[in-house]
């Protein structure tokens, strides 16, 4: 599925519509350059799930947890260096847990994932193109 967004609000809206279809246990891998709108898209997902916090970039925390109708676990794995760092953040307890995982910069964890949504956000002039695929 491909969506075009003109601005940040439309990116949030796209995330919202996408979030409405998510179920407990789903994993979403978000790829895109810095500033493409990964966290913005995640704000939409969180709205759909009535998360009590608005997502912020997890670059420094690595994982943010947003309780809601279904808990959302929001990752940014950019700072992880080895696959064993994934162990230090206890990633399995999230992936096999009771919520929805949204993972920015997921490359280092891809070998651990079997069944997930791949969302790619790329620049399109001033706007964005969002492609969604089930892997």
């Amino acid at each position: 599925m491909v969506i075009k967004c003109k601005n940040a609000e439309e990116t949030v809206e796209a995330g919202f519509k996408f979030g409405q279809s998510l179920k407990q246990g789903d994993i979403v891998c978000l790829t895109g350059d810095l500033g493409a709108g990964k966290t913005t898209f995640t704000k939409g997902i969180a709205k759909a799930l009535n998360s009590i916090y608005e997502p912020v970039s997890p670059t420094f925390n690595i994982v943010n947890e947003y309780p809601g109708d279904i808990p959302v676990y929001h990752f940014d794995l950019y700072r992880l260096e080895t696959e064993n760092d994934l162990y230090s953040i206890d990633i399995d307890s999230y992936l096999y847990g009771n919520g929805i995982c949204v993972i920015e910069w997921p490359e280092i964890a891809l070998d651990l994932l079997e069944d997930y949504y791949a969302v790619r956000i790329s620049y399109d002039g001033e706007g964005r193109i969002i492609e969604t695929e089930r892997i």
Binding site: E83, N84, Y87, D111, L112
Partner: peptide
């Protein structure tokens, strides 16, 4: 005593 599973070996 975590007994860390080797994710690397998994591959």
């Amino acid at each position: 005593d975590y007994m860390i599973k080797a994710y690397v070996d998994q591959e």
